[in-house]
Design a protein around this nucleic acid. Structure first.
Length: 284
DNA sequence: CGTACGACCTGCCCGC
DNA sequence: TGCGGGCAGGTCGTAC
């Protein structure tokens, strides 16, 4: 489900919703996601305070004031739900629950509930000491953030050019560039006029630079629209995103290409077991 | 070393 | 209505 724009939408909102809150209680409803869920969440975090929530690639990081951090990943079907004062029923796939108390307003004490929900359980919810070796291991090999102003474009071009794969495969590789998934790779390649099957080494420097600028364009637009909601993606207050209304190729098999003057239809092919969408006419 | 592929899960949608 | 197949926004271990 969630790629960089969706995770960014979630972490930005969380940074408002739970910043400075103190953990009152933690419930663990399932032993294991993609990796085991540690009981340390209960023993270590109760009574500690959220400093902030950040993002790296598709990972969210919740930093606490006792020098511990939660690293979470939403996998394919993960979501986070924040409720204030009025709590709904816990559902089947609600795996981890945090109860917070907001002491900032002395007159009105707010009760806040944080739920990690994940039907397919491909996600992660880990606790490590901040900047410990286990914490750092998760980010050691991840490539640069596309939206950072100091993104190393020349290094990106160089790393793409020495890959022995299709450009689609290279862009999904988190070690080359962080945060892209199937949707935003397909969309960036469409804007750049590059076929997903094109070989990395055959792309010119100019073309790869152009691709980078289109990646930035797509990601920024998607963040502004609150992410892409195809099936079940929702932000932390249950609202959908709107970038699906701006997709050129993803999930548009058999539909007309949206480029002016192009009357071809969008193709779907399988690469490495995953769908790629492109226009035969506009992407060479 | 780099690359390809199956495994990990549940749920939904479609055609028969 | 029911069942089987195919599909899904990701990542990782294994085999070559």
């Amino acid at each position: 489900m969630p790629e960089l724009p969706e995770v960014e939408t979630v972490t930005t909102a969380l940074n408002f919703a739970i910043k400075n809150l103190i953990v009152k209680r933690v419930d663990i409803k399932c032993k294991s996601l993609r990796l085991p869920v540690s009981k340390q969440l209960i023993t270590v975090l109760s009574g500690s305070k959220v400093i902030n929530v950040t993002r790296r690639a598709k990972y969210g990081i919740i930093n606490f004031d006792n020098d511990y951090s939660v690293i979470f990943h939403l996998g394919m079907s993960g979501s986070i739900i924040i409720e204030k004062n009025v709590f709904s029923n816990i559902e089947k796939h609600d795996h981890i629950i945090f109860y917070f108390l907001n002491f900032q307003n002395k007159n009105k004490r707010e009760k806040i509930r944080f739920i990690y929900r994940d039907p397919r359980r491909f996600g992660l919810f880990l606790i490590y000491k901040t900047y410990s070796s286990k914490f750092k291991k998760y980010f050691k090999n991840i490539g640069p953030e596309p939206l950072n102003s100091n993104f190393p474009i020349m290094l990106f071009v160089k790393n793409i050019k020495r890959k022995n794969t299709s450009i689609k495969t290279a862009l999904l590789n988190q070690n080359i560039i962080a945060g892209l998934g199937n949707i935003y790779v397909c969309e960036s390649l469409f804007l750049s006029g590059i076929r997903p099957t094109s070989l990395c080494k055959k792309l010119s420097y100019r073309k790869i630079e152009f691709l980078y600028f289109n990646i930035v364009k797509v990601l920024k637009k998607a963040i502004n629209e609150g992410g892409t909601s195809l099936k079940d993606y929702k932000n932390i207050t249950g609202e959908i995103g709107y970038f699906q209304n701006f997709l050129y190729v993803y999930n548009r098999k058999g539909k007309e290409c949206l480029n002016n003057g192009c009357n071809k239809y969008i193709k779907r092919i399988i690469q490495n077991g995953r769908s790629s969408f492109y226009c035969q006419n506009c992407q060479k």
